[in-house]
Protein backbone atom coordinates (compact mmCIF):
# COMPACT_ATOMS: atom_id res chain seq x y z
CA UNK A 1 0.00 0.00 0.00
CA UNK A 2 1.19 3.61 0.15
CA UNK A 3 4.81 4.15 0.85
CA UNK A 4 4.10 5.78 4.16
CA UNK A 5 3.65 2.39 5.75
CA UNK A 6 6.24 0.09 4.37
CA UNK A 7 5.40 -3.48 4.87
CA UNK A 8 8.07 -5.05 6.93
CA UNK A 9 8.76 -8.72 7.15
CA UNK A 10 9.53 -8.21 10.78
CA UNK A 11 6.04 -8.46 12.11
CA UNK A 12 5.01 -10.03 15.36
CA UNK A 13 3.10 -13.26 15.42
CA UNK A 14 -0.25 -12.36 16.86
CA UNK A 15 -1.39 -15.95 16.92
CA UNK A 16 -0.17 -17.70 19.99
CA UNK A 17 1.77 -20.76 19.10
CA UNK A 18 2.99 -23.62 21.17
CA UNK A 19 6.59 -23.55 22.26
CA UNK A 20 7.75 -26.33 20.00
CA UNK A 21 5.99 -24.87 16.98
CA UNK A 22 7.66 -21.59 17.67
CA UNK A 23 11.05 -23.15 18.01
CA UNK A 24 10.50 -25.09 14.82
CA UNK A 25 9.41 -22.13 12.75
CA UNK A 26 11.46 -19.14 13.68
CA UNK A 27 9.67 -16.59 11.58
CA UNK A 28 12.50 -15.73 9.29
CA UNK A 29 14.07 -19.03 8.56
CA UNK A 30 11.04 -21.13 7.82
CA UNK A 31 11.66 -21.58 4.15
CA UNK A 32 9.95 -24.53 2.65
CA UNK A 33 12.21 -27.53 2.65
CA UNK A 34 9.54 -30.02 1.81
CA UNK A 35 10.38 -29.96 -1.84
CA UNK A 36 13.33 -32.23 -2.48
CA UNK A 37 16.60 -30.36 -2.71
CA UNK A 38 19.00 -30.57 -5.61
CA UNK A 39 21.32 -33.53 -5.29
CA UNK A 40 24.06 -32.95 -7.83
CA UNK A 41 25.40 -29.95 -9.66
CA UNK A 42 23.77 -30.85 -12.98
CA UNK A 43 20.36 -31.37 -11.42
CA UNK A 44 20.88 -28.09 -9.56
CA UNK A 45 21.45 -26.33 -12.84
CA UNK A 46 18.46 -28.06 -14.36
CA UNK A 47 16.20 -27.01 -11.48
CA UNK A 48 17.46 -23.46 -11.80
CA UNK A 49 16.68 -23.36 -15.52
CA UNK A 50 13.32 -24.86 -14.68
CA UNK A 51 12.59 -22.02 -12.24
CA UNK A 52 13.77 -19.27 -14.57
CA UNK A 53 10.49 -18.55 -16.39
CA UNK A 54 8.85 -17.95 -13.01
CA UNK A 55 11.69 -16.11 -11.39
CA UNK A 56 13.00 -13.89 -14.17
CA UNK A 57 10.40 -11.10 -14.30
CA UNK A 58 10.38 -10.32 -10.59
CA UNK A 59 14.12 -10.82 -10.25
CA UNK A 60 14.62 -8.40 -13.13
CA UNK A 61 12.26 -5.91 -11.46
CA UNK A 62 13.94 -6.10 -8.08
CA UNK A 63 17.46 -5.88 -9.47
CA UNK A 64 16.84 -3.08 -11.97
CA UNK A 65 14.37 -0.99 -10.02
CA UNK A 66 15.48 -1.58 -6.43
CA UNK A 67 18.98 -2.97 -6.01
CA UNK A 68 20.78 -1.10 -8.77
CA UNK A 69 19.14 2.19 -7.72
CA UNK A 70 20.32 1.70 -4.13
CA UNK A 71 23.88 1.21 -5.37
CA UNK A 72 23.50 4.09 -7.82
CA UNK A 73 22.25 6.53 -5.21
CA UNK A 74 25.38 5.93 -3.16
CA UNK A 75 27.55 6.41 -6.27
CA UNK A 76 25.75 9.61 -7.29
CA UNK A 77 26.15 10.98 -3.77
CA UNK A 78 29.92 11.09 -4.42
CA UNK A 79 29.58 12.90 -7.76
CA UNK A 80 29.40 16.52 -8.81
CA UNK A 81 26.43 16.33 -11.07
CA UNK A 82 23.93 18.93 -12.15
CA UNK A 83 22.42 17.33 -15.24
CA UNK A 84 24.17 19.84 -17.52
CA UNK A 85 27.92 19.29 -17.13
CA UNK A 86 29.48 15.84 -17.16
CA UNK A 87 29.73 14.32 -13.72
CA UNK A 88 32.99 14.54 -11.79
CA UNK A 89 34.17 12.89 -8.60
CA UNK A 90 33.25 14.96 -5.56
CA UNK A 91 34.41 12.91 -2.62
CA UNK A 92 32.50 13.88 0.49
CA UNK A 93 31.72 17.40 -0.75
CA UNK A 94 28.03 16.66 -1.19
CA UNK A 95 27.75 15.32 2.34
CA UNK A 96 29.53 18.36 3.70
CA UNK A 97 27.39 20.67 1.58
CA UNK A 98 24.07 19.25 2.65
CA UNK A 99 24.93 20.01 6.25
CA UNK A 100 26.56 23.33 5.47
CA UNK A 101 24.17 24.89 2.96
CA UNK A 102 21.07 22.79 2.72
CA UNK A 103 20.37 22.49 6.39
CA UNK A 104 20.21 18.73 6.51
CA UNK A 105 20.41 19.00 10.29
CA UNK A 106 17.47 21.40 10.26
CA UNK A 107 15.49 18.98 8.10
CA UNK A 108 16.34 16.09 10.41
CA UNK A 109 15.18 18.18 13.34
CA UNK A 110 11.94 19.13 11.59
CA UNK A 111 11.34 15.49 10.77
CA UNK A 112 11.99 14.48 14.38
CA UNK A 113 9.58 17.17 15.60
CA UNK A 114 7.02 15.92 13.11
CA UNK A 115 7.42 12.36 14.41
CA UNK A 116 6.92 13.66 17.94
CA UNK A 117 3.74 15.54 17.01
CA UNK A 118 2.47 12.59 15.07
CA UNK A 119 3.26 9.27 16.65
CA UNK A 120 2.37 9.51 20.36
CA UNK A 121 -1.09 10.97 19.76
CA UNK A 122 -1.79 8.66 16.84
CA UNK A 123 -0.79 5.60 18.85
CA UNK A 124 -2.84 6.51 21.91
CA UNK A 125 -5.94 7.26 19.83
CA UNK A 126 -5.54 4.10 17.73
CA UNK A 127 -5.15 1.95 20.82
CA UNK A 128 -8.15 3.56 22.56
CA UNK A 129 -10.32 3.05 19.51
CA UNK A 130 -9.24 -0.58 19.30
CA UNK A 131 -10.03 -1.16 22.98
CA UNK A 132 -13.46 0.41 22.49
CA UNK A 133 -14.26 -1.62 19.38
CA UNK A 134 -12.71 -4.99 20.12
CA UNK A 135 -15.61 -6.22 22.26
CA UNK A 136 -17.67 -6.32 19.11
CA UNK A 137 -20.68 -4.33 20.25
CA UNK A 138 -23.36 -3.92 17.61
CA UNK A 139 -22.21 -1.38 15.05
CA UNK A 140 -18.49 -1.86 15.76
CA UNK A 141 -17.98 -3.13 12.23
CA UNK A 142 -19.42 0.04 10.74
CA UNK A 143 -17.26 2.26 12.96
CA UNK A 144 -14.23 0.25 11.99
CA UNK A 145 -14.96 0.76 8.30
CA UNK A 146 -15.45 4.50 8.78
CA UNK A 147 -12.18 4.83 10.74
CA UNK A 148 -10.19 2.94 8.12
CA UNK A 149 -11.63 4.81 5.11
CA UNK A 150 -9.10 7.70 5.28
CA UNK A 151 -6.24 5.24 4.97
CA UNK A 152 -7.27 4.38 1.42
CA UNK A 153 -8.13 7.92 0.38
CA UNK A 154 -5.72 9.48 -2.11
CA UNK A 155 -3.38 11.62 0.03
CA UNK A 156 -3.10 14.33 -2.64
CA UNK A 157 -6.87 14.69 -2.94
CA UNK A 158 -7.22 14.79 0.84
CA UNK A 159 -4.47 17.40 1.09
CA UNK A 160 -6.37 19.64 -1.34
CA UNK A 161 -9.42 19.22 0.86
CA UNK A 162 -7.50 19.97 4.08
CA UNK A 163 -5.93 23.01 2.45
CA UNK A 164 -9.43 24.35 2.02
CA UNK A 165 -10.61 23.26 5.49
CA UNK A 166 -7.68 25.17 7.05
CA UNK A 167 -7.96 28.18 4.75
CA UNK A 168 -7.77 31.26 7.01
CA UNK A 169 -10.86 32.97 5.54
CA UNK A 170 -13.05 30.34 3.91
CA UNK A 171 -12.00 27.29 5.85
CA UNK A 172 -14.43 25.39 7.99
CA UNK A 173 -12.04 25.46 10.96
CA UNK A 174 -11.74 29.24 11.16
CA UNK A 175 -15.40 29.81 10.28
CA UNK A 176 -16.36 27.53 13.16
CA UNK A 177 -13.88 29.22 15.50
CA UNK A 178 -15.28 32.63 14.53
CA UNK A 179 -18.73 31.42 15.62
CA UNK A 180 -17.44 30.98 19.15
CA UNK A 181 -15.55 34.24 19.03
CA UNK A 182 -12.03 32.98 18.33
CA UNK A 183 -9.95 34.49 15.57
CA UNK A 184 -8.15 31.47 14.12
CA UNK A 185 -4.56 31.74 12.88
CA UNK A 186 -3.39 31.46 9.27
CA UNK A 187 -2.76 27.81 9.92
CA UNK A 188 -0.62 26.80 6.95
CA UNK A 189 1.22 30.08 6.55
CA UNK A 190 2.25 30.14 10.18
CA UNK A 191 5.61 28.59 10.94
CA UNK A 192 4.22 27.69 14.34
CA UNK A 193 1.06 25.92 13.16
CA UNK A 194 1.89 24.49 9.74
CA UNK A 195 3.64 21.35 10.95
CA UNK A 196 1.09 20.50 13.67
CA UNK A 197 -1.67 20.81 11.04
CA UNK A 198 0.20 18.44 8.73
CA UNK A 199 0.66 16.03 11.64
CA UNK A 200 -3.04 16.22 12.41
CA UNK A 201 -3.92 15.44 8.81
CA UNK A 202 -1.57 12.50 8.94
CA UNK A 203 -3.07 11.22 12.17
CA UNK A 204 -6.53 11.45 10.64
CA UNK A 205 -5.32 9.43 7.68
CA UNK A 206 -3.48 6.63 9.48
CA UNK A 207 -5.05 6.23 12.90
CA UNK A 208 -7.71 3.78 11.71
CA UNK A 209 -5.11 1.71 9.93
CA UNK A 210 -3.04 1.43 13.09
CA UNK A 211 -6.16 0.62 15.05
CA UNK A 212 -6.52 -2.54 12.96
CA UNK A 213 -3.18 -3.83 14.27
CA UNK A 214 -4.19 -3.21 17.86
CA UNK A 215 -7.52 -4.93 17.18
CA UNK A 216 -5.66 -7.95 15.82
CA UNK A 217 -3.35 -7.85 18.84
CA UNK A 218 -6.24 -7.66 21.30
CA UNK A 219 -8.03 -10.50 19.59
CA UNK A 220 -4.98 -12.68 20.20
CA UNK A 221 -5.04 -12.20 23.97
CA UNK A 222 -6.43 -15.40 25.50
CA UNK A 223 -9.90 -14.76 26.92
CA UNK A 224 -9.16 -16.95 29.97
CA UNK A 225 -6.81 -14.28 31.26
CA UNK A 226 -9.66 -11.80 31.52
CA UNK A 227 -11.93 -14.41 33.11
CA UNK A 228 -9.29 -15.18 35.71
CA UNK A 229 -8.80 -11.47 36.39
CA UNK A 230 -12.57 -11.03 36.72
CA UNK A 231 -12.65 -13.76 39.37
CA UNK A 232 -9.84 -12.02 41.22
CA UNK A 233 -11.92 -8.84 41.17
CA UNK A 234 -9.68 -6.82 38.86
CA UNK A 235 -11.48 -3.88 37.27
CA UNK A 236 -11.39 -3.02 33.59
CA UNK A 237 -8.51 -0.56 33.98
CA UNK A 238 -6.39 -3.07 35.87
CA UNK A 239 -7.23 -5.68 33.26
CA UNK A 240 -6.12 -3.36 30.49
CA UNK A 241 -2.85 -2.28 32.08
CA UNK A 242 -1.94 -5.66 33.57
CA UNK A 243 -3.10 -8.00 30.81
CA UNK A 244 -3.84 -6.39 27.45
CA UNK A 245 -1.13 -3.79 27.44
CA UNK A 246 1.85 -6.06 28.26
CA UNK A 247 0.68 -8.56 25.66
CA UNK A 248 0.34 -5.82 23.07
CA UNK A 249 4.00 -4.98 23.47
CA UNK A 250 5.14 -6.27 20.11
CA UNK A 251 2.12 -4.86 18.29
CA UNK A 252 2.87 -1.53 19.91
CA UNK A 253 6.48 -1.64 18.81
CA UNK A 254 5.46 -2.59 15.29
CA UNK A 255 3.00 0.28 15.08
CA UNK A 256 5.53 2.72 16.53
CA UNK A 257 8.38 1.74 14.25
CA UNK A 258 6.34 1.62 11.05
CA UNK A 259 4.78 4.92 12.10
CA UNK A 260 8.18 6.53 12.57
CA UNK A 261 9.47 5.14 9.28
CA UNK A 262 6.32 6.35 7.54
CA UNK A 263 6.67 9.80 9.09
CA UNK A 264 10.17 10.08 7.69
CA UNK A 265 8.72 9.57 4.24
CA UNK A 266 5.82 12.01 4.30
CA UNK A 267 5.67 13.81 0.97
CA UNK A 268 2.31 14.07 -0.79
CA UNK A 269 0.54 15.90 2.02
CA UNK A 270 3.40 18.33 2.60
CA UNK A 271 3.88 18.97 -1.11
CA UNK A 272 0.29 20.17 -1.44
CA UNK A 273 -0.14 21.82 1.95
CA UNK A 274 3.09 23.75 2.51
CA UNK A 275 5.80 23.01 -0.08
CA UNK A 276 8.19 23.16 2.89
CA UNK A 277 7.13 26.63 3.94
CA UNK A 278 6.54 29.07 5.43
CA UNK A 279 10.26 29.76 5.27
CA UNK A 280 11.69 26.31 5.71
CA UNK A 281 9.62 25.44 8.76
CA UNK A 282 8.16 22.25 7.26
CA UNK A 283 11.09 21.26 5.07
CA UNK A 284 11.46 17.57 5.92
CA UNK A 285 14.18 15.41 4.36
CA UNK A 286 11.96 13.97 1.68
CA UNK A 287 10.88 17.36 0.43
CA UNK A 288 14.48 18.60 0.45
CA UNK A 289 15.53 15.65 -1.70
CA UNK A 290 12.84 16.48 -4.21
CA UNK A 291 13.68 20.16 -4.34
CA UNK A 292 17.45 19.66 -4.52
CA UNK A 293 17.09 17.21 -7.37
CA UNK A 294 14.24 18.60 -9.43
CA UNK A 295 14.18 22.32 -8.81
CA UNK A 296 17.86 23.03 -8.05
CA UNK A 297 19.22 20.16 -10.19
CA UNK A 298 21.84 19.35 -7.57
CA UNK A 299 21.68 15.61 -8.14
CA UNK A 300 24.76 14.83 -6.06
CA UNK A 301 23.52 16.64 -3.00
CA UNK A 302 20.05 15.19 -3.39
CA UNK A 303 21.59 11.72 -3.53
CA UNK A 304 23.65 12.42 -0.41
CA UNK A 305 20.44 13.48 1.34
CA UNK A 306 18.79 10.26 0.15
CA UNK A 307 21.62 8.20 1.63
CA UNK A 308 21.16 10.06 4.90
CA UNK A 309 17.43 9.22 4.83
CA UNK A 310 18.20 5.60 4.00
CA UNK A 311 20.63 5.42 6.92
CA UNK A 312 18.10 6.79 9.38
CA UNK A 313 15.38 4.44 8.20
CA UNK A 314 17.67 1.42 8.19
CA UNK A 315 18.55 2.07 11.82
CA UNK A 316 14.87 1.83 12.74
CA UNK A 317 14.19 -1.13 10.45
CA UNK A 318 17.15 -3.14 11.67
CA UNK A 319 16.32 -2.28 15.27
CA UNK A 320 12.80 -3.57 14.76
CA UNK A 321 14.06 -6.65 12.98
CA UNK A 322 16.49 -7.53 15.77
CA UNK A 323 13.86 -6.96 18.39
CA UNK A 324 11.35 -9.28 16.78
CA UNK A 325 13.95 -11.88 16.02
CA UNK A 326 14.84 -12.21 19.65
CA UNK A 327 11.30 -11.65 20.65
CA UNK A 328 8.92 -13.93 18.80
CA UNK A 329 10.28 -16.98 20.58
CA UNK A 330 9.14 -15.80 23.99
CA UNK A 331 5.94 -14.13 22.99
CA UNK A 332 2.84 -15.00 25.01
CA UNK A 333 4.64 -17.60 27.04
CA UNK A 334 2.32 -16.78 29.92
Amino acid sequence: MPAATPASPAVPTARSRTGSERAAASQYGDLDHRAPGPTSRSSGLRSFVHALPFLTPSLFGVVVFLLIPVVLVVVISFLNWNEINPATWAGFTNYINIFRFDQAAHSLGITAYYVLLNIPLQTVVALSMAVALHRGRRGSGLYRVLFVAPYLSTPVAMAVIWYWVFDPQLGAVNTALAHIGIHGPDWLSSSQWALPVVALVNIWQYVGYNMLFFLAGLQAVPKELYEAADLDGANKFQQFFRISFPLLNSTLLFVLVTGVIGSFQVFDTLYVLTQGGPGNSTEVLNLQIYQLAFTDFKMGEAAAMSVLLLGVILIFSIGQFMFFRNRTTYEYSV
Binding site: A3, P6, F65, V73, S306, L310, I313, L314
Partner: peptide
Protein backbone atom coordinates in the same frame (compact mmCIF):
# COMPACT_ATOMS: atom_id res chain seq x y z
CA UNK B 1 14.70 -4.57 -0.30
CA UNK B 2 11.48 -4.16 1.69
CA UNK B 3 13.41 -1.90 4.02
CA UNK B 4 14.40 0.51 1.25
CA UNK B 5 12.03 3.49 1.26
CA UNK B 6 10.79 4.58 -2.15
CA UNK B 7 12.08 8.13 -1.65
CA UNK B 8 15.65 6.86 -1.64
CA UNK B 9 15.49 5.27 -5.08
CA UNK B 10 13.74 8.18 -6.77
CA UNK B 11 16.88 9.91 -8.00
CA UNK B 12 18.69 6.90 -9.48
Amino acid sequence: TLMVPSAVTVIP
